[in-house]
């Protein structure tokens, strides 16, 4: 496992194959929690946390599934793992950081069905990543999510003061600006750490 290999996975997950802006996974929290910078930051950190843990546990469970030729159970087992993990994180947050728990509200349980998290663990398997590579991909995938949602939240905070036609108020203008940010991220395609 070379250093450049890790770096190229990280760069890929954060910029080139950004889960939200390039692969269009996990759009629900991206639109839902990006109204304010604080909650966007909290959501991003929660996703990093869940993605990293999910990568670790799914890798371990996959070690059991493969020798038994039960690869067809991967999706099912991973969903089970992610759902339990999110439940666990929710209980932990409610006890340890109640303010973050309240700020995330409905969106924390929604990470359960967030396709970006399931996407990370399934891609880990598809790309035959080792344990370290999986964890790196999980964490950096989460960081990519954080970067995207924080960028988007800062744009939306500015939109509050902008003048635009009545018909675009609220979600329409948010969707248009999300599309523009995604276009900007297309500029990273082809970027490579040799």
């Amino acid at each position: 496992m070379s250093f450049t290999g890790i770096l190229s996975i990280a760069l890929g997950a954060i910029l080139v194959e950004n889960f939200i802006l390039v692969q269009f996974l996990g759009i629900c929290p991206f639109m839902g929690v990006s109204r304010k910078m604080d909650t966007a930051l909290g959501m991003g950190i929660a996703v990093i946390f869940v993605m990293a843990l999910a990568s670790i546990f799914c890798y371990l469970v996959n070690l059991i599934l493969v020798p038994l030729h039960l690869e067809f159970l991967q999706t099912l087992a991973f969903v089970l793992i992610i759902a339990s993990l999110v439940q666990f994180v929710e209980m932990f947050l409610q006890k340890a950081i109640p303010s973050l728990y309240e700020a995330l509200g409905i969106y924390l349980p929604l990470i359960t069905t967030n396709c970006a998290v399931l996407g990370v663990v399934l891609l880990n398997v598809q790309k035959n990543y080792s344990f370290i590579e999986s964890v790196v991909y999980g964490i950096t995938g989460g960081i990519g999510f954080l970067v995207a949602i924080v960028l988007f939240a800062s744009v939306r905070e500015r939109l509050e003061f902008a003048e635009y036609p009545k018909a675009f108020e609220g979600f329409p203008i948010a969707l248009v600006s999300a599309g523009l940010i995604a276009l900007a991220f297309m500029g990273f395609s082809g970027l490579r750490v040799w």
Binding site: V61, I64, L65, L68, L70, L73, L76, A77, L80, I81, S84, Q87, F88, M91, F92, Q94, K95, A96, P98
Partner: peptide
Amino acid sequence: ILGALAVVFGAVLAFAAKKFAV
């Protein structure tokens, strides 16, 4: 396998529910 996974996770969650109860 799935049964075992479910039992393990269920046990962990039950424990967490007690431990982190607010």
